[in-house]
Amino acid sequence: MAQEEQKQSRRKFLFSLGIIGVIIIAVVTFARDMLLYLFPPKKEKKFHKYLVGKRGEIAVGKAKEIKIGKTPVYVVHLEKEYKVFSGICTHLGCIIRWEEDKGRFFCPCHKGIFDKTGKVIGGPPPRPLDQFRVEEEGDLVFMYVKNKTRGPWA
């Protein structure tokens, strides 16, 4: 008799342990999923990689124009490195052009002048030309453009 009672209580114990265990697992999993849902993950900024030139293609001190969409960027070969500048004037957003003979960038709107390292050397622009990240891999030169996402959720 006593044994039977013991048996039953063990079965009951295991049963309720199983039930409570499953309920706890379910509740914890659900809570975890809700938290995951509510807290957006940290997003790494993604870059788009463009091939902009080959080593030796551009002579030292010269620039090459490349169109990305409608706006141009300029790949400049400086003595030690390559740089890529945005073709948009930092003054009021006009498109600048490269003056080969003078080795400088010129903005026709308000006569802003930048040298081949992007610094302002004349006119109204308030800051140097915007630069893109550049990396050289072997013989090739690449630039990186930040991926823009659709919608207000960046």
Binding site: D33, L36, Y37, P40, W153
Partner: peptide, 11 residues
């Protein structure tokens, strides 16, 4: 956005 981007949003 909920269905495609948000973590477990589809769920």
């Amino acid at each position: 956005h909920i269905t495609e981007d948000v973590r477990l949003g589809f769920w």
